[in-house]
């Protein structure tokens, strides 16, 4: 990044390559410092793309990657003609969209509230308590959630019963249409505190003079939040939001895998789980890779689309 900016800002009368090498020598320490990370990216993000070849073969682990039967787009055709694929795609998009909305509204609101607190000790304590669940693994969280929602002495049902809101315990985990909501809420509980940290950091970077000026102008607390704090974190917010859109389709499968049961399978199976069950588990590595490629392509399209829209609206770009 550094080299590019200097390159662009240099005068245009020297030949381009010469100029490039000159800056490179000048900034050799910067280059050296970035080198490990470049290597890291190449090894972990670009070298594995080699494996995409598998999607166009009938891959058998016994032979090398070039010593395989080539089948062209067979696996993609199979993938797009499988009904189940569209079902899991629906589940994936539904849960990730719900998750995206929740994980960008709740933490911002929470951060706004925390930011207004005067008492530092109280603020820090609340913040720490709030982000602790982030470090609890999904295995444990799913246990807590199923136990809480159990009809057999689960806390939620007990509470609703004692408030006389219901007279029969509700089978939360057995209702397919509620599964998305349960996953989203569980995710919100686990990650809200953690996601708040970065917004709080952005908020503390806002120039206090702005607040002072608005106090002079007679703005109240809510006005200040609306006109100073929120615009102050807009860039951070948008960068995170657009990057998250890129992950819309690859949301992992731990939560769904651990929370699901046979009754809700039609709402719980997500793309990654499908890749595991119908790809790797059946030794159809090629099919699994095809799903992976689909994932990546969709992710890239989504990121650029989101950035494009943002650019249109605000004339800024984050990528």
């Amino acid at each position: 990044m550094k080299s590019q900016t200097t390159e662009l800002s240099s005068p245009a009368n020297v030949s381009k390559t010469k100029r490039f090498f000159r800056t490179m020598v000048q900034q050799k320490y910067l280059y050296l410092m970035s080198l490990p990370f470049v290597i890291w990216v190449v090894i972990f993000s670009y070298v594995p793309i080699w494996g995409w070849l598998m999607a166009f073969q009938n891959y058998k682990p016994r032979n090398g990657i070039l010593d395989q039967e080539w089948v062209g787009f067979k696996h993609f055709i199979e993938l797009f003609s499988d009904e189940r694929f569209y079902l899991v795609l629906r589940n994936t998009l539904a849960m990730s969209t719900m998750g995206l909305i929740v994980s960008f509204t709740v933490p911002v609101i929470f951060a706004l509230l925390l930011n207004e607190l005067r008492q530092q000790f109280f603020k820090r304590t609340i913040q720490t308590i709030a982000y602790l669940p982030h470090f609890v693994s999904w295995v444990v969280v799913s246990g807590i959630v199923t136990k809480m929602l159990s009809t057999d002495g689960g806390a939620v049902n007990e509470l609703l019963m004692s408030l006389n809101l219901i007279d029969q315990p509700i089978q939360f985990m057995a209702k397919g249409e509620w599964f998305w909501g349960i996953v989203t809420v569980a995710d919100a509980w686990k990650e809200t505190g953690w996601n708040t940290i970065i917004f709080l950091a952005a908020m503390s970077g806002i120039d206090p003079e702005l607040y002072e000026a608005s106090t002079v102008d007679g703005a109240g607390r809510f006005r200040k939040m609306w006109h100073i704090t929120l615009p102050g974190i807009r860039t951070t917010f948008m960068v995170l939001f657009i990057l998250s859109i890129g992950h819309l389709i690859s949301i992992g499968f731990e939560k769904q895998f651990l929370l699901m049961n046979p009754l809700v399978i039609d709402y719980a199976e997500v793309l990654d789980l499908y890749a595991l069950n119908y790809g790797i588990n059946l030794s159809r590595y090629s099919y699994g890779t095809a799903i992976g490629i689909f994932n990546s392509v969709v992710s890239i399209i989504l990121v650029f689309l989101a950035n494009f829209i943002y650019k249109k609206v605000t004339k800024e770009s984050v990528i």
Binding site: T146, S150, Q171, M173, A174, N261, L263
Partner: peptide, 16 residues
């Protein structure tokens, strides 16, 4: 029949 028969995890079952 236990209403949770198809919802419970193995450890819940064992605990029960």
């Amino acid at each position: 029949l236990d209403k949770e028969s198809f919802v419970q995890k193995y450890d819940q079952y064992k605990a029960k």
